[in-house]
Design a protein around this nucleic acid. Structure first.
Length: 554
DNA sequence: TACACAAGCGCC
DNA sequence: AAAGGGCGCTTGTGTA
């Protein structure tokens, strides 16, 4: 059962029961308390709406404009719907599928395209619910939001049915929409973050918290050492000044990257490298960061679902996807609780094996250590197998890669051909798609120009590497997203998802529930595998452990 | 003063 | 262990 939702003024709203398809199966319900109406419908399996007499109760699929706008109010009231259809995210997927990348994705924009009206730009960030969708004075009566939602939804169902593989695309839409729910929940619930341990860690490395605008004592001492080593004041935060300082000391460096500086013999190098490492910690994840993102023992990041073209998530605040490993000891379960930390092992080569239907590779991917299982094919060395696979997926050409790729081509021809085909399509400027139908951006106008010129071969090769990687990374991302969605549905009681990072999930739960959660992760992985690839010999093992502290998960 | 961009490095 | 692609975020720096 699908129910279209539109928020009205003062917490009111309109619900339109849609049944399985786009047509309404009952008149609109105008409700004074939208949050309450959603809560009641979730509790009663839709019965509270009085439109499904005689049918078994089930959680409605809420069809709404944008979870970012609607869901926070529900969460604040403790209402967590089981599933939704997010029109904005779905519009992005469908536009990209048609090679129309980057057009406005809001339902208002989609509706305007449908009706041939001027298309409004997307508002950036999480737009609040708007009572009126159209503020333009253009001709045509303003539509009620519920009509816009219903019309765009109906249009999306038609377009989904017209994709190359509607079953897969429907799964993609469902997973993406579930992701929108999870992302809002992660921001709302937050990851356990011990401010006292964080402060201890920072103080130990940097010295006590400095007054605003000052460097911590340890950083200042290192900066002074750098200046002393060069015999004049040098700002270690300025790459330009550092290059100049080295030059006047008789050392020519192409950049100030750590890797470059490590090879340089000069008394300034050691304090400079130490400074860079600690300065990053101070400015990225220091006290000011904690002031902004940590409250009451929880780190509240802002995720952006599908913020990366491959479908991976990005962040728009808090930097949850770039937390340094040294910070993991700050993530500590509550007293009597555990963190179940789970990551997928060697996800991308397994995805390739399943997509390509390569028998040999799939057989190896039936083992826990895929690379070890492949070692024999690559001269008995596990590392050779790893290099071969990664080079095939990423377009690597350095070192032993060419030799090992030749072996790969011979031993695993279908897997090899699969990524080669994606690379060739990219070089020719074509679109490529993930397993479920997420579609790469078309080449830019700049690229089309460039590819005809003297640097054309390089531009083509670069895009080939991108599309080669896209098909694997995007499919890995949707496997992980599907796992996340299934796992969310299997968690019970107070257990909460608290972290998601590409191929890794973390659940915070009471200690006595930890084993159950570990098992749920395994079941969710199997279910995700079955949903994407059906009956495949490829296994997707998850390494899941209950720990008291994130740093203890190895 | 505001903004755009590059450098550099963290994560997968 | 590295190789590849992709992001976010901060600082310094140059330009409007």
């Amino acid at each position: 059962m699908r129910i279209a939702v539109a928020a009205g003024p003062g917490g009111s709203g309109v619900l339109r029961p849609l049944g399985p398809g786009p047509e309404p199966v009952a008149p609109d319900l105008v409700v004074p308390d939208l949050v309450g109406a959603v809560r009641d419908a979730e509790r009663t399996g839709g019965r509270s709406l009085g439109v499904r007499a005689g049918e078994p109760p089930e959680h409605p699929r809420w069809v709404w404009a944008d979870a970012r706008a609607l869901y926070p109010a529900l969460l604040a009231a403790g209402v967590r719907p089981a599933r939704c259809h997010d029109l904005a995210l779905t519009e992005s997927l469908l536009l990209a599928h048609d090679g129309r990348y980057g057009e406005p994705r809001s339902p208002a924009a989609a509706y305007a395209r449908l009706r041939g009206l001027p298309v409004p730009d997307d508002h950036t960030g999480a737009a609040p619910v708007q009572a009126t969708l159209f503020e333009t004075e253009k001709p045509g009566p303003p539509a009620d939001e519920i009509d816009v939602v219903a019309a765009v939804h109906a249009d999306q169902l038609t377009r989904i049915a017209a994709t190359a593989d509607p079953r897969r695309f429907r799964l993609l839409v469902a997973a993406e929409s579930a992701g929108a729910l999870v992302a809002a929940e992660l921001a709302h619930d937050g990851m356990p973050w011990r401010a006292d341990v964080h402060d201890e860690l920072l103080t130990g490395l940097l010295g006590p918290r400095p007054v605003h605008g000052m460097r911590p004592a340890r950083l200042q001492a290192l900066a002074d050492q750098v200046s002393a080593a060069f015999g004049r004041p040098v700002n270690p935060d300025s790459p330009q000044q550092i290059v100049k300082a080295f030059k006047s000391a008789g050392v020519s460096v192409p950049s100030t990257r750590s890797q470059v500086l490590k090879e340089v013999e000069h008394p300034g190098v050691a304090p400079l490298l130490a400074y860079k490492e600690l300065a990053r910690l101070f400015s990225f994840h220091g006290w000011a960061w904690a002031d902004q993102w940590v409250r009451e023992g929880r780190f509240h990041p802002e995720y952006v679902v599908a913020g990366v073209v491959s479908g991976r998530w990005a962040t728009s605040g808090g930097g949850a996807l770039q937390i340094p490993k040294v910070m993991r000891r700050v993530v500590v379960a509550d007293e009597g609780w555990r963190l179940v930390v789970a990551d997928a092992a060697q996800l991308e080569p397994r995805v390739l094996a399943a997509m390509a239907g390569d028998r040999g590779l799939a057989a190896a991917a039936g083992e826990i250590d895929l690379y070890a299982a492949l070692a024999q094919a690559f001269g008995g060395l596990r590392d050779n197998a790893k290099i071969a696979l990664l080079s095939a997926m990423y377009g690597g050409t350095s070192g032993d890669a060419p030799k090992l790729l030749a072996v790969m081509r011979q031993r695993f021809p279908r897997a090899y051909a699969f990524v080669e085909e994606a690379a060739r399509a990219g070089e020719e400027g074509k679109l490529v798609r993930s397993w479920l139908g997420r579609t790469s951006p078309p080449p830019s106008a700049r690229w089309r120009e460039l590819v005809l010129g003297p640097e054309g071969a390089r531009a083509a090769r670069d895009r080939g590497r991108f599309t080669r990687n896209f098909v694997v990374q995007a499919t890995a991302a949707e496997w992980a997203l599907t796992l996340l969605a299934v796992l969310r549905g299997r968690l019970s009681g107070p257990a909460r998802l608290v972290f998601f990072q590409h191929d890794e999930v973390m659940v915070h739960c009471p200690a006595e529930q930890a084993d159950e959660v570990v098992a749920a992760v395994g079941v969710a992985a199997e279910e995700a595998t079955r949903l994407l690839f059906g009956d495949t010999p490829v296994r997707f093992p998850m390494h899941a452990v209950p720990v008291g502290c994130y740093a203890d998960a190895k």
